[in-house]
Design a protein around this nucleic acid. Structure first.
Lengths: 243, 243
DNA sequence: CGGCATGTTGAAACGTTTCAACGAGAGTGG
DNA sequence: CCACTCTCGTTGAAACGTTTCAACATGCCG
C-alpha cells in the first residue's frame, strides 16, 4: 500500500524556511524532536521517505505505528464523513510534525498533496526515547499540545467566522509560514477543493471569495497556486471581520 | 481569585455514572490517571476542589500549573474572540480530564457551568509521575490524544453539519454519556447560550431547532434543562443528516 | 487535437443571523 | 401574597451569506 522510497540525498529543503538542512548521516529519531540540527547519537529505524502527489501516507482505521515530520511539500489530514463529504482537519507544512496517536488505529487519513518528503519515526522508538530522555518526553507532549491548540483555532474559525474571514486568515497564515514579504508571490500549497474542505466551505464559495478579494485589489492571483498580497492591512482587517 | 474549598466528603457522585466513587483517603494524583479506583500509594499535593456556578477555574493567559478531572457537574472550555463573541471549545462532564498544557500560559478559559467538584493534579506531580511510571506517561499521551480527537470531531461538526444535525448529535452524546434510556429525561448541563456557543450557532437558531424537534415529536422538553428522547431512530437520522 | 481534471461564474433555493418584541421563571422586598 | 426586577428562553420577519445546480473556462497531458 505505502509508496516508500529512501531518497539518495535529503539535503535540499526548497520550501522549508524555518528548518535547517540536515546531512543524511545525521537524520535520526532524535532529529525528529529537534528544531535545529545537532550532533546527538544516531538511533536505528528512522528514515526520510517520499510520497508522490496524492499518495496516502496512512488511512483512517490503519494501525498507528509511525509519526512524521514534514521536510518538504504539504500533507493534508482529513476525515471522510458518512455522507461522502470530506473535512480537512489540518494542513501540515515543512517543520510540522504529525501522526502521534495513542489509540491502536488512525482516527484520520494523511495524504501527500504534492510530492512530499517526510522524516519518519516509529512509535516504538518514541516510547524508548520517552523512557530515556525527559526532554523528548516534554517535546512529545508539546507536540500534541500544539496540535490541540491548532485544532482549537480551527474550531474558532469554523464556529464564528464568515467565509471571507476564513479565507483571509488562511492566506495570512500561509504567507507568514513562508516568510513572504508583501508584494511577493507565495505558494498556495492546496487546490481550491482542499481549500474549501479545510475551511468548511464549498469550492464555489471559496472561488467566489478569492475572486472578490482579487477584484477589490487586496490580493492578486498570478496563477492558480500563487497569491500576492497587495494590501496587507486590508487583508488583516478582512481576516478579523472589519468591513 | 480561585474559589477553592476542600469538601468534607467527596464520595457521592450523583451525576457520574461511569466513574466509581473514591474514598477520600485514596484521592491521589495516581487516581487522576485511573478509570477505576485501586490501592496505589498516596502522593502529595492532590485534592478535590469545588467551584460555584459561573466561577472561573482558569483564564486564558494564566500560568498553567494544574490539570483537572471532573467528578461532578460540568465545565466549559472557551475562548473569547476579538469581536467579543465566545466559542466554547469543549464541555467537560464527569470522568473527563482537562487542563494539560505545555505552554506556560493557558490558551483558553475554563469555567464551572453549575456547581462543580473536581480532582486537581499539579503539573509538577505529573512531570514526576512521568519520569517514574511508564503507564502514567502512556495515560498522559492518551489523554491529550483523546482531547485532540474530540476537537477533530468538533471540527467535522462545525465544518460540515447543519444546525439541526449539530443539535441532534449533541443531544445523543449527552444521553449516551448519562446512560439515559429512551423515554427517560436526561439533564442538559448547559443553558441555551452555551449550547449555541458550543455548536457555532446563535441562541435564536438553537432555540428554533429545539422547538422544531419538539413539535415534530422527536424530543420533549419537560423543563429548560431536561430533555426526553421520544423517537431515537428519528433523532439519529436527523443527526446524520437524513431528512 | 481531444479528453479530463480543475477552476470560475450565475441565479435560485436554502439556512442562519439580525433585530425586535415578548414570555416564563426565580429571587427579592414591601 | 403580590409586584418588581433580572435573567433566560422563545418567536417573527427581513436581511444576509452560503449552497446547489448548471453551464462554461482554463490548463495540462497523452
Amino acid at each position: 500500500m505505502l509508496q516508500i522510497t529512501i531518497p539518495r540525498m535529503p539535503a535540499e529543503h526548497a520550501f522549508c524556511s524555518t528548518h535547517s538542512p540536515i546531512p543524511a548521516s545525521l537524520v535520526t529519531d532524535s532529529h525528529f524532536f529537534q528544531y535545529t540540527s545537532s550532533n546527538s547519537p544516531a538511533i536505528a529505524d528512522s528514515a526520510t521517505i517520499q510520497f508522490e502527489r496524492k499518495k496516502t501516507i496512512y488511512s483512517q482505521h490503519d494501525a498507528a505505528r509511525h509519526c512524521y515530520k514534514v521536510v518538504k511539500g504539504a500533507v493534508r489530514n482529513s476525515r471522510i464523513l458518512t455522507d461522502g463529504h470530506r473535512q480537512i482537519l489540518d494542513i501540515f507544512l515543512p517543520a510540522d510534525r504529525f501522526g502521534i496517536e495513542t489509540g491502536d488505529t488512525r482516527s484520520s487519513t494523511a495524504e501527500a498533496i504534492g510530492d512530499v518528503v517526510l522524516l519518519r519515526c516509529a512509535h516504538t522508538s518514541i516510547t524508548r526515547l520517552n523512557a530515556d530522555q525527559p526532554e523528548t518526553r516534554q517535546q512529545m507532549l508539546a507536540m500534541l499540545s500544539r496540535s490541540l491548540c491548532r485544532a482549537q483555532d480551527h474550531i474558532v474559525m469554523l464556529g464564528h467566522q464568515r467565509g471571507e474571514q476564513r479565507i483571509c486568515s488562511f492566506l495570512l497564515r500561509l504567507a507568514k509560514s513562508q516568510g513572504c514579504p508583501v508584494g511577493e508571490a507565495f505558494d498556495l500549497p492546496v487546490g481550491r477543493q482542499d481549500l474549501a474542505d479545510y475551511l468548511g466551505l464549498t469550492i464555489e464559495t471559496a472561488c467566489r471569495i478569492l475572486s472578490r478579494l482579487k477584484s477589490s485589489r487586496i490580493i492578486s492571483v498570478p496563477s492558480r497556486r500563487q497569491i500576492i498580497i497587495l494590501a496587507l492591512a486590508r487583508l488583516e482587517a478582512a481576516a478579523s471581520g472589519n468591513i
